[in-house]
Amino acid sequence: MKNPFEIATGTVVSGKWHKNSYRIIKRLGHGANGTVFLADSKGKKVALKMSREARIITSETNVLKSFAKAQGKRPLGPSLFDVDDWEHQGQVIPFYVMEYIEGDTLFHFLERRGRTWLPVLILQLLEDLAALHKMGWVFGDLKPENMIVTPPPHRIRCIDVGGATKISRAIKEYTEFFDRGYWGLGTRKAEPSYDLFAVAMVIINCYYPGRFQKKEGGLNQLNHMIRKHLELKKYAEILNKAITGKYQRATEMRHDVLLFIQNKAFLANKSSYNRYQTQKKIRSKKRKQIWSVLETIFILTVIGFLYFAYFLEKMM
């Protein structure tokens, strides 16, 4: 129904209000809400999003503006540069220009570098979500397709803010697999726990890239799928707390993920650590034995000497 915008490479998009121009390099993606292009702005790469509906451009730029106020040093979403209208072939096309976040999508990255990276990325994500929640926003539509891992230093960023909703309002946009309402495990009210449910589903999705359909009994099915995968099973406790809404804050979940990583590191090193401990014990035991022998000899010598002295005295 909604066709992507077909705009040739090299086309210059110029704004009606702010008079900035952008040269289109290529199309990056297309979704239900619009088309995103890579563009050049005075030698700098930027991402430019167009939509047939001004409403979408306006509400997304509103979100990006609030995000900018909210976050400061580590923004989860892209920074906003410009909002304008492009008059093109008698049509007015609303667009906005944002930071181009370069990198691999979460799945590509994990495929390339291994799933050992996942817990670290989740820690980063949870820290950023905590900051976002603190400022009164919920991300809403969290899913791996919208997550980019930047080149070193690797960091997770989210590129589509269409679902971002002010806390306690109704979630604006969601994807069924990541939506707790779909699984019958909660409301669609924007609460931090809504995002944390989605984070758990992102982790699950990393082990079941094809996702799966809901059957009767959402919770049982999810728990079953978690336990069925050996690697995923290790996260069972954290995932279960997140999908049943036990975490009220991102920091609580982050704390558990942190413990999880530390425990894993401890377990991995436990065997070599043990060997070292035993060697130390053996060595110190030997030392103790030598001392006790010397001690006995010393005492016996002293007693012998005293006895000898007593004997001599008696003889005289």
Partner: peptide, 18 residues
């Protein structure tokens, strides 16, 4: 209409609609 306003004012009106 809303679409004919500059983007900044459009944003404020959108907040009202939301």
């Amino acid at each position: 209409t809303i679409e004919e306003l500059p983007p900044e004012q459009r944003g404020e009106i959108m907040e009202v609609v939301d």
